[in-house]
């Protein structure tokens, strides 16, 4: 069953089509919502939370209609905003407790859960410190704690590693993975950093300028070695060497990406070893000099590129 499901979802702001006819299914586990800044990630999240009404289309969250049942949806969803603004003079424990109460926890329960959530994100000893005295990394953890303190079924995290150094980012990604694996809370993580999504997500939804360009299991979208990338060096007495290599490989039935005038060719085939053998043979026959050759692994960046250039 989908945690989030959209049908023909579009959102138009004036002349700007922020979301364009999206049919998205977000499954259980950790899902990465990826795309450049302005791709529509935050707009998508605000519609999922029932805070914006889409221009057209329908959104179901946890089996509820996000528009008609927005209040019920938000009671079951935790949210960590992108903005790093928090009440400066409020202790972390009071902040998390207050938001747990607003999300429906009884006061006595909220206090205990706020404390637990802050311990879980590694801020147990710091929980009585004012938010204004905390570092960026600690504030990101507090935002995560408030998102999980009310025991939501789903957590939406908008750029949760924004502003973190590499060590803090690693720790935050481990925490997010832990939320799903150990606490059974599904996570929709918005990020423009593809590498971190590849590290922790089970599924990916990729947006580009409001359009859906890919979705599915991460393992199905990245990781396979699919070919070879070759940088050739043009030799003056062999002016057609590169063209010869390209023609030979295409003759072998392989998919070859090459732009006229470029010294780089990318070769894709059903089996990476087979592609490598064919490239080796073509290079030997042409006599072209090789500058660099490497196996090519598909990654999320390929989803946003027109082809393996």
């Amino acid at each position: 069953m989908s945690v989030i499901s959209t049908t023909d979802l579009s959102m138009v702001f004036g002349h700007n089509r922020a979301l364009d006819d999206l049919d998205v299914d977000v499954h259980a586990g950790v899902t990465g919502l990826v795309g450049a800044n302005g791709a529509g990630k935050t707009t998508f999240m605000s519609i999922v939370l029932g805070l914006r009404y889409p221009t057209t289309g329908r959104v179901e969250v946890l089996g509820l209609d996000a528009q008609a049942d927005g209040t019920e949806v938000r009671a079951l969803v935790g949210y960590g905003p992108e903005r790093n603004l928090l009440p400066e003079d409020m202790p972390a424990s009071d902040f998390v407790k207050h938001l747990a109460e607003v999300r429906g926890m009884p006061r006595s329960e909220a206090r205990g859960r706020a404390s637990d959530a802050l311990w879980l994100v590694g801020l147990g000893e710091e929980r009585f410190r004012a938010l204004g005295t905390m570092s960026t990394g600690q504030r990101q953890r507090v935002k995560l704690a408030q998102a999980i303190a009310s025991d939501p079924s789903l957590v939406l995290l908008d750029e949760p590693t924004d502003g973190l150094d590499p060590v803090q980012r690693d720790e935050m990604l481990v925490l997010i993975r832990q939320i799903s694996d150990e606490y059974g809370i599904d996570v929709l993580l918005s990020s423009h950093l593809l590498e971190e999504v590849e590290r922790i997500c089970d599924h990916v939804v990729a947006l580009d300028a409001g359009r859906l360009i890919a979705q599915g299991r991460l393992a199905d979208l990245v990781g396979d070695e699919e070919g070879v990338m070759v940088d050739l060096v043009e030799i003056p007495d062999r002016p057609d060497a590169i063209r010869g290599v390209v023609a030979r490989l295409r003759g072998d039935g392989l998919e070859v990406h090459h732009e006229d005038g470029s010294t780089r060719i990318a070769v894709v085939g059903p089996d990476a070893d087979l592609v490598a053998d064919r490239v080796r043979d073509a290079l030997a026959e042409s006599g072209a000099r090789v500058g660099r050759i490497e196996r090519r692994r598909r990654n999320l960046e390929d989803l946003f590129a027109p082809g393996p250039a």
Binding site: T71, A75, G104, P106, E109, D116
Partner: peptide, 24 residues
């Protein structure tokens, strides 16, 4: 180590949210 506990009790919904924000 209490760890993470699921919550099965009732939630106060909009009324509780308004009450909590008004008091805060």
């Amino acid at each position: 180590d209490r760890g993470y506990r699921r919550y099965e009790g009732s939630r106060s919904g909009t009324v509780g949210a308004v009450r909590s924000v008004a008091w805060h």
